[in-house]
Amino acid sequence: MSSPVSQESTRRRLTQQQAETVTRLTDAAVDVLNAEGFDGLTVRSVAKIAGVAPATAYTYFSSKSHLVAEVFWRRLSAGVLEPDPGAPRSERVAQVLREVALVVAGEGQLGGAVTVALLGSDPDVEHLRVRIGAFIRRRLAAALEEDPENPGPLLDALEMIYSGGLVYAGMGHMTYEQTSERLVAAAHLLMEK
């Protein structure tokens, strides 16, 4: 059974068959990334691995950045759970930050590709970037018991910390596992104030 995210697309709602095609394309994108890196990734090469006509692939993804951003969005929405309401506030925040940082951990070249892709100017990437940011904000706001539409300074600071940490890791300066623990440590320091 498909999750609601697998039935979505940046461009339209998907039928079951279309959702399966998009899943094959996103899975193939990770395979191509691991073999060729972001520079070697093309929508055409992903389509070939997925067994999909290139024209069909382009109906779903406007660019390789759009495709990589979609991979990240799907993994993020599946991998970052609602914070445990029974846990202390600092542990709820730590849970969210760890899960965000670890979404691409152990995924070869995906993390660096996500960093490059999300910084692009493709309108479909911009749409996903907004969706991703809003999703993470909602998770952090839930952990802090704040209104995501009216964030306080702590939520703003946590957003700046995680986005900087993920860019730093995406540039290869540290692993996503190391980033996860540093994000949690930084959050604890902020929350002690």
Rank of each mutant, 00 (worst) to 15 (best):
S2K: 14
S3V: 00
S3P: 02
P4I: 03
S6N: 13
Q7S: 11
S9D: 13
R11Q: 08
T15H: 02
Q16W: 01
Q18V: 03
Q18M: 12
E20D: 13
T21H: 02
T23K: 15
R24F: 06
T26W: 10
D27Q: 15
A29K: 13
G37R: 09
G37Q: 07
D39I: 06
L41M: 08
V43P: 06
R44D: 15
R44S: 13
R44W: 05
V46N: 07
A47Q: 02
G51I: 05
G51P: 07
V52A: 11
T56D: 02
A57N: 02
T59H: 06
K64Q: 08
A69V: 12
E70S: 15
E70P: 00
R74H: 07
R75K: 15
R75S: 10
G79A: 09
L81A: 14
E82A: 15
P83D: 03
D84P: 01
A87F: 05
A87S: 15
A94C: 09
Q95S: 11
L97Y: 03
V100N: 03
V104M: 13
G106Q: 05
G108L: 10
Q109W: 06
G111L: 12
G112F: 12
V114P: 00
T115A: 11
T115F: 04
V116L: 13
V116A: 13
P123E: 04
V125Q: 03
H127G: 03
R129F: 09
V130G: 08
R131K: 14
R131F: 08
I132W: 00
G133W: 11
F135H: 10
R139D: 01
A141Q: 03
A142H: 01
P151T: 02
G152I: 00
P153K: 13
D156A: 06
I161F: 12
I161Y: 07
I161G: 01
Y162T: 10
S163V: 09
M171K: 14
H173A: 11
Q178R: 12
S180H: 11
V184P: 04
A185K: 12
M191G: 09
E192K: 11
E192C: 00
